[in-house]
Design a binder for these strands. Structure first.
Length: 615
DNA sequence: CTAGGGTTAG
């Protein structure tokens, strides 16, 4: 018999990873033993790591009459992450109705999973599921997690509901895995968070994964307080959080800018011995940076053994937010030396660092090097950084030229960047025109009219300013209210501009008056041109005095020990007057004040700000 | 063959 020796030859070929050669041997084997051929085929497919090899193998499988073999097809799909290979396998199933009886749920699950994992072909997972049902192949409990994962990626609530219904019809909606994935799916769909919560609330048994899915859902949506609240409930329920839960919790802390909470989370991680995975460390870095303590972020970063591109990017982006551009650039160079290849996201951090620190030359060089050295095509975000970089230094026309040159239509962010530059550098007419364009793009966005109105104020065009205001009123458009958050003694306080209903209203306003007197003595003068209201000067002054950050700072001065730093988070950009006032407060009251605004951090100390008035 | 997570312009 020749068979054993040929089999040996196949094994050898497989070891050498030469699957096509092995296939030739297989061909001979088949003459002796059909069953052996089938088994060898499976082994063979395991070694196929490219689409070309897969198709070669498959072409030969046709010769052996094994092209419809479900085991072979399953292997074919699960071996490859290549979309072509998956589609190819799917098309074989679809092209031959007569052999559909050969296929089982296992094969369909594999194909559904494969499509669910792709970036752009998730809808095919749903399609294959439909084919499965049409051919009366019953789904099993493994089918739904795969299918739900695809639905989550498609962000389509109606589709999600249908899949949910289908799972219920087959009796799998009480399965823990299915329910957990369902929470994830609903919370990923637009408007689906309530449905996710509904699934979560109805569960009779919840695993840590269920809690993580729900907390992660809130965190992803920016419902950070809900995320933190649910985490507290999780602890009360006695369910032990793991590293994945903590990633979502940290991400919620980062979003809130709640440093105390974030520090506590880190303490909890240490106390519970939760394993500090790469993702968890990255989340810690991001949390510390976004909560205003970028040195802590650096500490976590330096202690990391395996720093990935995300770790580097997070810490570079963190330094950028704090205006520490030179350090960010140095770290970027260090990253390249460590043989970590920069990606498009890391360039966003780097360019934004250059922009915030006024490093125009370095920034321009890096922008060039992005394409020339790394073959990364700049996205609109990268152009956005460059536009901002030129705008800040007063090169408004250079910024404008870049906008005209870039291969994208300018979006609202780009317009706003230009408008701010125009305002800061006295290009008021240009600013007026661009603002009108922006309003054309976003006519329902109240803040855009505020921008326009502020430009008219600067131009002293009072009648136009008043027209704009009246237009806003007529259309019922509103400015987003300024809102500032302050964390004190494990409590989160919120302050809204001009709020007179606040619980601590009296003491705050008393303090504001006192602050006003002390600041004036120190030489502070209100800057009131940024105020929208068309009222007399004294009232205008009053209005800026009641900006939410001032309320928060007053409250913090009253309720925290002397000389301790004050950290606040604002939902909008800090206005010129508040920026100036905070500088004085830091000196007069001898406090370090860290302000996170919409765009970046300001560290006020001894009468000056880390942004060097460059924001 | 099954579930949850990290970085992204102003």
């Amino acid at each position: 018999m020749q068979f054993p020796s040929i089999k040996k030859g196949i094994c050898q070929s497989l070891k050498n990873n030469s699957c096509v050669k092995a296939l030739h041997s297989l061909h001979y084997t088949e003459i002796f033993n059909k069953r052996a051929a089938e088994q060898n085929c499976l082994a063979l497919l395991k070694t196929c790591n490219s689409f070309i090899k897969l198709t070669q193998v498959h072409a030969n499988l046709f010769k052996l009459g094994l092209q419809n073999n479900p085991l072979v097809l399953t292997k074919f799909t699960s071996t490859s992450s290549n979309l072509n290979a998956i589609s190819y396998a799917a098309s074989i199933i679809l092209s031959d109705d007569s052999s559909i009886y050969l296929y089982d749920a296992f094969l369909f699950n594999t194909i559904i999973r494969a499509f669910a994992q792709t970036k752009d072909a998730k809808h095919n997972a749903v399609f294959i599921y439909c084919v499965m049902l049409r051919n009366a192949i019953l789904p099993n409990k493994f089918t739904f997690p795969f299918l739900l994962k695809a639905s989550a990626g498609l962000v389509d609530l109606n589709l999600g509901k249908q899949v949910h219904g289908s799972a219920a019809k087959f009796g799998f909606d009480k399965d823990l895995y299915v329910q957990n994935t369902m929470i994830h799916m609903y919370s990923s769909c637009v408007g689906g968070i309530e449905f996710a919560r509904n699934v979560f609330d109805r569960m009779t048994e919840r695993s840590p994964v269920s809690w993580s899915a729900m907390i992660g859902g809130y965190a992803r949506l920016g419902q950070s307080r809900d995320a933190v609240g649910l985490f507290r409930e999780m602890q009360i329920s006695g369910v032990r959080a793991d590293e994945i839960t903590m990633v979502s919790v940290l991400s919620a802390c980062a979003d809130l800018g709640a440093l105390e909470l974030g520090k506590w989370a880190e303490f909890y991680i240490e106390k519970e011995g939760i394993s500090k995975t790469e993702e968890l460390c990255n989340a810690l870095i991001d949390m510390f940076a976004k909560c205003g303590d970028v040195d802590e972020a650096l500490r976590v970063f330096c202690k990391m053994k395996d720093k990935t591109i995300v770790s580097w990017t997070s810490v570079i982006g963190g330094l950028a937010m704090h205006g520490r551009g030179t350090e960010a650039v140095a770290l970027f160079e260090e990253m390249k030396n460590a043989n970590v290849t920069p990606d498009d996201v890391s360039f966003i951090g780097l360019l934004s660092a250059c922009s915030h620190a006024g490093l125009v030359e370095e920034g321009s060089r890096y922008f060039e090097s992005m394409t020339s050295d790394f073959g990364i095509m700049p996205k609109i975000e990268h152009y956005g950084c460059m536009v901002d970089m030129f705008s800040r230094t007063g090169l408004v026309y250079k910024a404008l030229e870049l906008v005209h040159k870039m291969p994208f239509e300018p979006n609202a962010v780009i317009y706003r960047t230009l408008i701010n530059a125009c305002r800061a550098h006295g290009e008021l007419e240009l600013g007026e025109n661009i603002t009108k364009q922006l309003i054309g793009e976003e006519p329902l966005h109240g803040s855009n009219y505020v921008l326009l109105s502020n430009i008219y104020a600067k131009m002293s065009r009072w009648e136009k300013k008043s027209d704009t205001r009246q237009f806003m009123e007529k259309k019922g458009l509103r400015k987003i209210p300024g809102c500032t958050m302050l964390e004190l003694n494990n409590k989160i306080y919120e302050f809204v501009a001009g709020d007179r209903t606040h619980k601590h209203f009296k003491e705050i306003y008393k303090m504001l008056d006192e602050m006003g007197r002390k600041l004036k003595k120190a030489g502070y003068v209100s800057i009131i041109s940024d105020v929208l209201l068309d009222i007399d000067e004294e009232d205008k002054e009053d209005a800026v005095n009641r900006h939410s950050e001032k309320l928060a700072i007053a409250f913090a001065l009253l309720n925290s020990p002397p000389k301790t730093p004050i950290r606040i988070v604002k939902n909008l950009r800090v206005c010129g007057d508040c920026h100036s006032a905070t500088k004085f407060i830091s000196k007069v009251y001898d406090r370090e004040i860290v302000v996170r605004d919409r765009n970046r951090f300001h560290h006020f100390r001894d009468g000056s700000c880390s942004c060097k008035d460059f924001w």
